[in-house]
Design a binder for these strands. Structure first.
Lengths: 359, 359
DNA sequence: TTGTATGCGTTATCAA
DNA sequence: TTGATAACGCATACAA
C-alpha cells in the first residue's frame, strides 16, 4: 500500500483543495490494477482491449474521479494557459480583442484567462508574478503603456520573469520596448489614424481644429497626438496650444472640459478626440451649447466602438483593428512563428458627425 | 544530493513548463542551507535574523527563482482562483458584472479568470471539467440558461463535479436549479422589469404594445416575456400573438424583423424589447420607416447598456444590477456566508424614447 | 533555528 | 500489456 489509507486525514486547507475525494491510487486500487495502468487508461494511452481497461473506467466513474491537473502540469503535460492582462475589463474595445484571442486559444485546447490591473502598476507587477508562479504559457499585455523610462524597464523585467518559467510575453496595442526586439509586439497605427482624421477635416475646409484628450504620459496618447500634429503640419497649419483640450478618457469629464473650452474659442469648427468616449462627451456638450453637429462643428472619435454608428449623428471615427490584434496574438500564443513586431493598419470611417466647415 | 544534478535533462514539453530554471533545491544549495530552510525564508515564515536568511534571498535573486505555484497548490497552500464563465465576452453587460466580481476577488489575493463558452454546451462542459481539474476555487456560471430539463441536469452535474474537488458553483443572472437549493444563485428581477415597462406604457395610453425578442427556450427570454404578459394582464388587455416579433439578440436582426413587421401592424404604438441591443435595431427600422420616436411610437429596452443614454432619443430601459450581482458573487466566492438564492431588484428608467400614445 | 524525511498526485522509465 | 520505482517541486511534522 503506497499511500495512507485514511481519507479523513484530508482537512480543510487555506489554498486550493489539496486533493479531490479520490485520486489515481484509489481508482487503481478499486480496479485492482497498478496506478501506472490506471493512468494510462484514463489518459487514453491504452489500447482499450483488456478487461482491466473497463474496470478502471468503471472505478473512476464510481469514485467520481477528477484528475488533478496541477499534478499533471508538474509532470510537464496538460494544457497551457494564456492570460490577457489589461488595465480595465469593461468597455468594448479590449473586449473585442480579448474575444478574438480567446477564440483562437481555446479552440486549440488551452485555457484562456482575463485579468485586469486597474491601471495600478504594483497590481500589474504582482499579477504577472502570480501568473509566472502558476506557470502560465503566454501573457498578453494589452493597452496603453506609460512612456516613463522606468515603466519600460519594468515591462522588460516582466519578459525576463516570464522567460525564466518558459512563458512568453506579447505586447498588444502598445509600442515595442526599446532595445528588446525579443519581446513580441502587435500594435496598430494610432498616429496614421488621427492624421487621416485631421486630413479629412482640412479637406472639408476646417482650419481651427481642436484636439480633445491627453497628449502625453501614455503611449496611446502620445502616438495619437503625434497624428494630430502631423496632419496639421501636412496642411501647413501651425499648431495652436490653446486648442488642446486635456481631459480624462471619460464622457463626463470630456463634456465638462468642452463646456469650459467653448466660450473662449467660438472660432473652432472641429474637434478631433482621443477616443470615441471623449467624442460622445463632446457631442453632449456641443448639443447643450446649442451647436449642432455637423452643421456648426464636426467631431471625430477613435476606436469605432460598436454603438457609435447608432448615435445621431453617427460618429465619424477611426476603426481600430481590435479583432485582428487579438486574433494574431492568439495565434502567436499557440505557437505560430512571429517576426517580433508589427503595426496593423487602421481604417478611417466617415459617418455623419463631420461636414464642411461653416463660413 | 536529493535531486539529479544535470539541468540539461529538462527538455521542451508539450504542456506547461515542467520547471523553471531554478528550483528550491537549487536555491538552498547555493545558499548552503537545507530546502526546508530556504522554503521557510522564501515564504516569510522565518524571523529574518540569521545570516542564512540573507544568503537564501540573495541566492533566489541570483538564480531568478520563481516559486512553482503548481507544486504549492498541491500542498494545499497558495492562492485560490475564481472563474467567470459566460457565453460571450464582448458586450458591456457581462463585462460590468465581471469587473465587479474581479474587483472583490483579486483584492482578496485570489486569481480571477474569465472564460467563455460561445453558447456551446459541449464547450461549456469541457470548460467546467478543465476548471475542476485545475482545482479552481469557485465557478461563476453567468447568463441566460436553456430551460430544457436536460440542461438543468447538466448544471446540477457541474455542481457535483466541482463539489468533488472542493469547489463551489454560483449561478449568476439565471434562475436556480430546481430541487437543488445547495447551488448558490443570484438573479435579478427580469419579470418585474418588463412588467414595469408595460405598465409605464399603459399609463401613457398605449394599448397596442408589441414584444420584440425571443419568448421561449432560454431562461432570460421566458422570464422577461412573462413580465410582458403580466403587465398586459394587469391592464386587462388580452395578449395578441400577432404582436410578438421574434428576433435574435442583435441590432441588425432586430431591425430586419421590425421592418417586416411594421407594414402589417400600423396600429402598434409601442415596442417592448428583450434587450437594449434589440431596441437599438428597432429604433433604426422605425426611423427608416419614417416613424419618429417617441412622437409616433415608443421604444423600451432592457439592461441599461452604457451608451444608450446618449442615443437620440435617449433610451427608456430597465437597469439591470450587473455590478451588484458581480459584487455579491465575488464576496461569496471569497467566503462570505450566503443563504443560497436571491433575486436583486431592477430599476425602470424613463428617458426620451417613450411618450404618450398618439391618438 | 535548522535539517531529515516524507507526502502531494501524476507521468515516465524500464524491466518483467 | 502491466507493475514497481523514480522523478516533479514544494511544504511540513518531527528530530536534532
Amino acid at each position: 500500500m503506497s499511500t495512507t489509507e485514511s481519507p479523513e486525514r484530508r482537512g480543510a486547507s487555506p489554498g486550493p483543495e489539496r486533493s479531490g475525494k479520490a485520486n489515481l491510487v484509489d481508482v487503481a486500487r478499486l480496479a485492482r490494477v497498478s496506478p501506472a495502468t490506471a493512468s494510462r487508461v484514463l489518459a487514453g494511452r491504452s489500447k482499450g482491449k483488456a478487461a482491466s481497461h473497463d474496470r478502471v473506467l468503471a472505478a473512476a466513474e464510481e469514485l467520481g474521479y477528477v484528475v488533478n491537473g496541477l499534478a499533471r502540469s508538474m509532470m510537464g503535460v496538460g494544457r497551457r494557459s494564456v492570460a490577457f492582462v489589461s488595465a480595465v475589463m469593461v468597455g468594448p474595445t479590449f473586449a473585442t480583442m480579448a474575444a478574438a484571442a480567446e477564440q483562437v486559444v481555446t479552440e486549440d485546447g488551452h485555457l484562456f484567462m482575463l485579468c485586469t490591473t486597474h491601471g495600478d502598476t504594483e497590481r500589474e507587477r504582482a499579477l504577472i508574478e502570480s501568473l509566472a508562479e502558476q506557470r502560465v504559457g503566454t501573457v498578453l499585455l494589452v493597452g496603453s503603456a506609460s512612456t516613463a523610462e522606468q515603466d519600460e524597464q519594468r515591462v522588460a523585467s516582466y519578459a525576463d520573469s516570464l522567460g525564466r518559467v518558459g512563458a512568453q510575453l506579447i505586447l498588444c496595442g502598445r509600442p515595442p520596448v526599446a532595445h528588446r526586439p525579443d519581446i513580441a509586439n502587435i500594435d496598430y497605427d494610432h498616429t496614421g489614424g488621427v492624421r487621416s482624421a485631421v486630413e479629412h477635416l482640412l479637406g472639408l475646409g476646417h482650419r481651427r481644429i481642436a484636439y480633445v484628450g491627453m497628449t502625453a504620459g501614455m503611449s496611446t496618447e502620445e502616438q495619437r497626438f503625434r497624428g494630430y500634429r502631423a496632419g496639421l503640419d501636412g496642411g501647413a497649419i501651425e499648431i495652436d496650444e490653446a486648442l488642446l483640450v486635456p481631459t480624462e478618457n471619460d464622457p463626463d469629464a470630456a463634456a465638462t472640459a468642452i463646456a469650459a473650452f467653448l466660450p473662449e474659442h467660438p472660432d473652432v469648427t472641429a474637434f478631433v478626440c482621443h477616443t470615441d468616449h471623449i467624442a460622445i462627451g463632446a457631442g453632449r456638450s456641443l448639443r447643450a451649447a446649442g451647436l449642432s453637429v455637423p452643421e456648426h462643428v464636426s467631431v471625430i472619435g477613435f476606436d469605432d466602438t460598436p454603438l457609435v454608428a447608432d448615435l445621431t449623428p453617427a460618429l465619424t471615427t477611426v476603426h481600430a483593428p481590435f479583432r485582428e490584434v487579438g486574433d494574431l496574438a492568439g495565434r502567436i500564443a499557440i505557437g505560430e512563428p512571429f517576426g517580433g513586431s508589427v503595426v496593423l493598419p487602421v481604417e478611417f470611417i466617415v459617418r455623419g458627425s463631420t461636414g464642411p466647415a461653416p463660413r
